[in-house]
Amino acid sequence: MVKVLTLSFAASIKKLLNLNETVNANENEEPHANGTLASSAPILTAEGEPIWKVLVFDDLGRDVISSVLRVSDLRSMGITMHM
């Protein structure tokens, strides 16, 4: 059951970082055991270019994201800034 939680948790975060568009790039993509996303393709524009995004959070939002994603993961999702 717990595996479900970590997978869904990571999936929810990934989805929100992709502006809540469902990414159907690879359904079988296996996140690591703690939900860290192995590869996270950013959503693309109609021209096939990545969309850059800014992320703004409060303390809780920061803790939620940093528990599953590292700075490099964020960058690969098109979130360009880091602390």
């Binding site: 502006l19 995004k53 800014v54 409060d58 809780l60 939002g61 939620v64």
Partner: peptide, 15 residues
């Protein structure tokens, strides 16, 4: 305090 970055989508994750 944050600087303007116009035309870039922003994602807020807040309580």
């Amino acid at each position: 305090p944050r600087h303007p970055i116009p035309d870039v989508p922003v994602i807020y994750l807040l309580e």
